[in-house]
Design a protein around this nucleic acid. Structure first.
Lengths: 342, 342
DNA sequence: TATTAGCACTCAACTCAAATGAGTGCTAAT
DNA sequence: ATTAGCACTCATTTGAGTTGAGTGCTAATA
């Protein structure tokens, strides 16, 4: 059996209607709803076909039909085709990641949640293969030294180390020069054991300090373990009865609270190279188990220097895909603007 | 009417039982449950008295009794009296607040949630009247300067500023000396307009840089607007039917997500000076509206140098107060240990 | 051959009344 | 002062009956 034009139209009508109401939709409704001028009986026949083809299902005999995952998938795919796909690129910014980035992302994710009425998440951009840009040791007081480590992309890490006896200015200067001349521009892979040994040797009596600083550098560069993820609008799930029962709500909220769990989504999104920015996971397609009754729309944003992050919107399967994707694009555009301003 | 010893015992038995089951408790149950050897009829009489006194209420005729807020209050107060009140003091630590503190607090709040089965929160310690300890300007590349600002208590702030043309080493050194000699040890109140003008004047051509750095300093010191709060175990509320209905759950979860809302709790807790560490808010006593059906137990922890933060546990009124307070103390002790180790 | 009207059938959801049982208040006996 | 006993209350459970939206099938129609 083929999916002819009329079947497609009926399917679309079913999905549209279900998106609005959240209730199974019957043949009579569709008979009115569309401009096809067909009787409910005819619609019933077509619906039987659509069910056989797997695009819609009946929750129980004598109930209307609701879209299956396959049905949603078809709907989303055709919709995406119609839309223009270019996503505004986000570029160039100087930004102290640690401090301000966090605030900005929190704001973005909140606005997104308010606009869409779904739960939202955003991951801070991750830096890969970053190189050391600059190290600065300073004396904070008698027995504490502050090491400031700046990595490409202006990621800044601070590390305080304690020392036995006070170091004089000259020693500090020497250590600074030693570290910067040898290390600047190197990635963590390039800082090997031999180099560490050589540096320590040159540092003489202060090899322990050099050692500790190098550890901090390694930590700072490879530190993508703590993938920062911000969420908002978790409570929106209560707006959709099909997600609001205790079992599901509890699971979802746990997922949103244990933000690491969302990491899987970020990985999955970033991994999928050939999609141009926006991806849609319907039901079981989602990499996260607790979202098997949801739809998830993700977008990848990219800042300067290959820093990529992920935005995600999690809602019921009968999500307003159209609006969500539009909003995502707008948000990305605005993000871009905001950065440029700074 | 007086609250004699027997009435107290019966009240305590009612509360204990209700804490366990979450169901209204009847006279027959108490008649068995206690070692008073009284018939259910007698208990009924006593219960009638207790109700008149306002310690217990009946959800409806022909149901058992449940404790009123007043009843809980009595229970908690007497329990607190019995317990030893000293809280382990938490002291001395060197810690880069920004980086590691966050991780630690996240861990603490999580452990607490797992141990108690309630929702938990912790606020990062706030710094008041902090003084500037140290400023360091460094050149990151041609037209960017990194300002590192260290405040008492080793709070470190980074700020990147852009400059038109490159500054030579000598200028950098001069600026560093200028800033440090004039500003170190000052609190934000002491950095007044006259001083700013004088510094700018001395900086000559680079007054704009000095201006920006001073802004950053002011921002860093007074920055308690972004009171950091971490939460965990939100989903635990689903374990208590009396909190798990959609309306209440949604409100509570919103509160936990919009962490600023929890700020009221922190303020309230810190404000109450004369309680020695642990406070209990029952029902409407809570400063947060959405928690009117909950009990909230808070504790103040204090680190070196007057840095105070708040830990909070939010659960149903029939919270296991005993255990919660014990756990809170243990956690504080462990926090202490962890700091000492570093 | 495609569409439609009509009808019997299904089944979740609602309604309503009866049954259940945990719990109370009161009274009279101990 | 305590208790046994009993009538009474009322939330909750149960089950039968009703409703109504929706289906599948068949025969008539265009």
């Amino acid at each position: 059996m083929q999916l002819d034009e009329r079947k497609k139209k009926i399917l679309q009508a079913i999905i549209r209607n279900y998106l609005e109401t959240g209730e199974p939709v019957g043949s009579r409704t569709i008979s009115r709803y569309t401009d096809l001028n067909l009787s409910s009986a005819t619609i019933r026949n077509e619906m039987a076909d659509l069910e056989e083809l797997g695009y819609i299902v009946q929750p129980h005999t004598s109930a209307g039909r609701i879209p299956s995952d396959k049905g949603y998938r078809l709907y989303v795919d055709t919709m995406l085709e119609e839309k223009d796909k270019e996503i505004e690129e986000m570029k160039g910014l100087l930004l102290e990641r640690e401090d301000k980035m966090g605030h900005l992302l929190k704001q973005v994710v909140k606005v997104l949640a308010q606009n869409t009425n779904y739960a939202t998440m955003i991951s801070a951009p991750q830096y890969h293969h970053s190189k050391l840009k600059f190290i600065q040791l300073s004396r904070v007081d008698e027995n504490q030294i502050l090491a400031v480590i700046v990595i490409e992309g202006n990621v800044i890490k601070n590390h305080i180390l304690s020392v036995e006896q006070e170091l004089d200015d000259e020693t500090m200067l020497k250590l600074n020069i030693l570290l910067n001349t040898h290390l600047n521009g190197l990635s963590v892979e390039e800082i090997n054991l031999g180099m560490v040994a050589a540096l320590k040797h040159q540092a003489g009596a202060h090899s322990d300090i050099v050692g500790e600083v190098l550890d901090a550098v390694a930590g700072a560069i490879t530190e993508d373990e703590d993938l920062e993820i911000y969420t908002s609008g978790t409570n929106n799930i209560f707006k959709y009865p099909e997600l609001a029962d205790q079992q599901k709500a509890s699971e979802l909220i746990t997922t949103f609270e244990e933000k690491q769990m969302l990491g899987a989504l970020v990985q999955e999104t970033l991994a999928d190279e050939n999609s141009n920015g926006i991806q849609v996971y319907i039901g079981d397609e989602s990499p996260i188990q607790s979202m098997k009754d949801c739809s998830v729309v993700t977008a990848t944003y990219e800042l300067d220097e290959g820093m990529k992050g992920t935005i995600g919107i999690i809602g019921p399967k009968r999500m307003d895909y159209d609006k969500v994707i539009g909003t995502l694009k707008t948000i990305m555009h605005q993000l871009d603007e905001m950065y440029k301003k700074k």
